[in-house]
């Protein structure tokens, strides 16, 4: 399998002891190894390039040249830079001053939106809120049924006036759900939407309309931790097409290295707020940037 970055770097620095500064070729060799490690972790190529630019700069500085163990020092720098990007301005969910707070979920097909809707509902309920799940995916076969089962498991109310599987208008359902929430005294509305591709203009337009109809406090972009190089294009499409306020990384219970976290963070500038770590409703955690950095580096 993959060598860890430290193994990769150790070769370069075997003959380095005693040098007062790294030569350009040392730095290039280092950059190459970091590049490989990040690519194997699925960090997107343009993001790798920018990242290495930063790290190279720091490698030229005195913190490395003076170090007893330059390889460890560089790993420390790489790790710090990763955490810096992954963790910038971590924050909790934004609640509206005038309830209901609206949380809209968006993402590619199969990313984990509906499951996350159930998880959020259960968690928010345990925090003393009264969430309402809204079945605004009327496209995927039996998405409404899926959300109903999750609502039952989370013991929260679901608003599902349309049967779905191709029948009903999701924008209307989303809009009407707010009225329903107010009447029913729900303080948080979680809108599940259909999966869509960034290049699907019609579906992206629908997502914009749902957004306009509900004026969400949060639009969470759910992305599968197994995604590869397409993370950048997809994140850009949702950033520009729907507008997002935060990111949720799903299926982190797998063994993917999850370099997409870095790509998405870099492209959207939005915080990664939660980690989805399983199929059950409790498999859900706040996002830990330091753990993610170690994971990307295979440490």
């Amino acid at each position: 399998m993959f060598d860890s970055l430290s193994e990769r770097l150790s070769g370069i620095f075997e003959n380095l002891r005693g040098k007062t500064r790294l030569s350009d070729s040392d730095i290039d060799a280092t950059a190459r190894q970091i590049r490989l490690a990040l690519l194997e972790a699925d960090v997107a190529l343009p993001v790798v390039k920018t990242f290495i630019g930063h790290v190279k700069g720091r490698c030229r500085g005195k913190e490395v040249s003076g170090a007893l163990n330059p390889s460890q020092q560089i790993i420390k720098i790489v790790n710090e830079e990763l955490v810096k990007i992954l963790g910038g301005e971590t924050r909790r969910l934004e609640f509206s001053k005038q309830p209901p707070t609206v949380v809209m979920l968006a993402g590619l097909q199969g990313a984990g939106k509906t499951t996350l809707a159930g998880k959020l509902a259960k968690w928010l309920k345990s925090e003393g809120h009264s969430p309402l799940l809204v079945a605004a995916d009327l496209q995927r076969p039996n998405a409404v049924g899926q959300l109903s089962v999750l609502a039952e498991r989370a013991e929260v109310e679901i608003y599902a006036p349309q049967p779905g599987s191709g029948v009903g208008d999701p924008v209307e359902v989303a809009r009407d759900s707010l009225e329903h929430a107010k009447k029913a005294g729900r303080d948080i509305v979680i809108v599940d939407t259909a999966g869509r591709l960034g290049v699907d203009e019609e579906m992206m337009e629908q997502a914009r309309q749902i957004r306009e109809a509900t004026n969400p406090d949060e639009v969470l972009f759910v992305i599968d931790a197994m995604i590869g190089q397409d993370a950048v294009t997809t994140a850009e499409a949702f950033r520009d097409g729907v507008g997002i306020t935060g990111v949720v990384l799903s299926k982190l219970d797998g063994d993917a290295r999850g370099g997409a976290a870095l790509s998405v963070r870099e492209v959207t500038g939005k915080p990664i707020m939660f980690a989805s770590v399983g199929e059950k409703l409790d498999d859900f955690d706040v996002f830990h940037p330091d753990r993610m950095a170690s994971r990307i580096l295979g440490m």
Partner: peptide, 11 residues
């Protein structure tokens, strides 16, 4: 296999 999958697809 989902085409968006990265290196984990091999695993």
């Amino acid at each position: 296999l989902d085409a968006t999958t990265g290196q984990n697809g091999l695993q």
